[in-house]
Design a protein around this nucleic acid. Structure first.
Length: 501
RNA sequence: GCCGCCAUCGUCUAGAGGCCCAGGACAUCACCCUUUCAAGGUGAAGAUCGCGGGUUCGAAUCCCGCUGGCGGUACCA
């Protein structure tokens, strides 16, 4: 069994291709087969050189491996279509020789005109076969002629084509509705239909897994196989990945069309793989008595174990970023502190937080660990540990308090800080907590809400961190150190003082 | 327009004729925990299985029609 991913290098790895790659890789592994990559670069106008590397990078980041490809080599190479051109030309010539294809000299202008007229008559656009059975000289006399011909596949005009889709069951087409497609361009480059069939055959592809958008061109492919007398591979059309508006995920409107976006936004490859896998596979949870309750967290091995084309739901899948984000949070929480630190490092660097060697980093990270849902949030939730940040001074006055009361609380807290800093227990979260409990007592802060105004989301938190939310305050202060805390509290007192009363 | 594919809570899905007046996850809401935010726990709300006809003792599951969504209709892939 051999399966292939056939991306065209048009700029970046589309998330849909990554999805397909996962299905390919898992399916091949499931059946002990081989997974190969073939680069479909026959459309020179859309070719972008860096794109090929982006495809490999993306797949590798996701954790997928392939057995053969342009980079990996293999017995069925070359694996770039641009390096296989003569084969396609030979195949086209052979088809012409068999009478299953013919040269067509119609100019693009004539074809446009023909289609316009057909649409005017409300007929489906279909090539009128003006060139069929004519020599070049005969055709030239008719006008609408261009020097270099294309090759068109001669399709049957009646009857039906039926194939078994491994995901969807039987699918039938009416030949009378189909036109003769171009299979070799006038510049000598093969069109997908020819190139892919020749390659699939020569590379021994046994299972063609491709996106749903290919369903309607399957009869063309069947004709090519039929003309050569080849046996059709197993064909399966996978569901499309859709956007929230139910449309295709497009690069222009949706940045997550690019696989690289997920890395940049701080998603872990394991989380993305898990999410994508969940769209096509159900992993039963042996520990749960209710068989309808699946496991939510699983990896490539479980996907391999449970992948089954017949059980892939054929309907389009709307990409749920919220669910991915939630999954990502779970994967982040399962990371060790060391792993998290490594994962977060590039994001900190990119944000200008060069704190890799700072001993405070692991301690701060430990406090933020369970709060992270994306690695890209790290700079924001960590920055105040390392630098004083600007904040809106009005935040120093919590809801329900006036400036004077806030000032009063902050001054009292400031004295408390001093006594802990010079106290016998030293600067620890436990000492700070005990001290502030006693303070709340003395200030007569009885309800949770009142105490919250002091430290929860209150004056002290804002003074020390510049934020109204964050990790437990006393542990945060311990990591920050007494000097920083005192400096920031004094600063906050000044800002409060300069606020109009 | 024509052809094709698809159709279960907002989203992803479980479901392969009786186990389903439909189960789980995300999101939402409430409560618990918590001197903030999370995380965790408990619970609620949310689907007359797109609509209408069949088949059957029995249909989310099979068949037909309709509607809607998507895809294709290129010298793109």
């Amino acid at each position: 069994m051999r399966v292939r991913l056939a991306p065209s290098p048009t700029g970046f790895l589309h998330i849909g291709n990554a999805f397909l790659a996962l299905i390919d890789a898992a399916f091949a592994r499931r059946h002990g087969g081989r997974f190969l990559i073939r680069i479909e670069d026959t459309d020179q106008e859309r070719f972008i050189p860096e794109a090929e590397a982006a495809i490999y990078d993306g797949l590798r980041w996701l954790g997928l491996e392939w057995d053969e490809g342009p980079d990996a080599g293999g017995p069925a190479g070359p694996y770039r279509q641009s390096e296989r051109l003569p084969r396609y030309q030979a195949a086209a010539a052979e088809l012409v020789g068999m009478g299953r294809a013919y040269h067509c000299w119609c100019s693009p202008e004539r074809l446009d005109e023909m289609r316009r007229q057909q649409q005017g008559r409300k007929q489906p656009p279909k090539y009128d076969r003006l060139c069929l059975g004519k020599t070049e000289a005969e055709r030239k006399a008719l006008g609408g002629y261009s020097e270099r011909p294309v090759v068109r596949l001669l399709m049957p005009t009646e009857g039906q084509a039926t194939f078994q889709d491994a995901i969807r069951g039987p699918i039938t087409f009416e030949y009378a509705l189909l036109q003769d497609p171009v299979i070799l361009r006038s510049n000598g480059f093969a069109v997908y239909h020819l190139a892919a069939m020749v390659d699939d055959r020569e590379m021994g592809i046994s299972h063609v897994l491709r996106g749903e958008e290919w369903i309607s061109s399957t009869p063309i492919h069947m004709q090519i196989y039929d003309a050569f007398g080849w046996e059709l591979p197993v064909i399966a059309h996978t569901p499309l990945l859709l956007n929230t508006d139910r449309g295709k995920i497009s690069k222009r409107k949706h940045p997550w069309a690019k696989m690289s976006w997920f890395r940049e936004e701080g998603f872990l490859p394991a989380a993305l793989l898990n999410y994508l896998g969940g769209l096509v596979v159900h992993v039963p949870d042996p520990e749960n008595v209710d068989p309808s309750v699946d496991r939510e967290l699983f990896g490539f091995d479980e996907i391999v174990e449970h992948i089954d084309l017949q059980r892939i739901g054929p309907s389009g899948k709307i990409f749920d970023l919220d669910k991915l984000t939630s999954l990502n949070g779970q994967y982040i929480r399962r990371l060790s502190l060391g792993e998290l630190q490594d994962a977060v490092h590039p994001f900190l660097e990119a944000a200008g937080l060069h704190v890799g060697g700072d001993p405070k980093l692991p301690r701060a990270l430990a406090l933020e660990h369970e709060r992270l849902r994306r690695l890209s949030e790290a700079p924001y939730v960590l920055s105040f540990f390392f630098r004083d940040e600007d904040y809106d001074a009005s935040l120093l006055i919590p809801k329900g308090l006036d400036r004077n009361r806030a000032l009063e609380l902050l001054r009292a807290a400031r004295r408390e800080i001093d006594s802990v800093a010079s106290g016998p227990e030293g600067w620890t979260a436990t000492a700070l907590e005990a001290s502030f409990r006693a303070l709340a007592e003395r200030l007569g802060l009885k309800t949770g809400r009142e105490r919250g105004q002091l430290i929860g989301a209150g004056v002290v938190r804002v003074a020390v961190t510049g934020r109204t939310a964050g990790p437990p305050l006393f542990e945060t202060m311990e990591v920050l150190g007494d000097e920083t805390v005192i400096r920031r509290m004094d600063e906050a007192l000044n800002r409060l003082l300069s606020l109009a009363a």
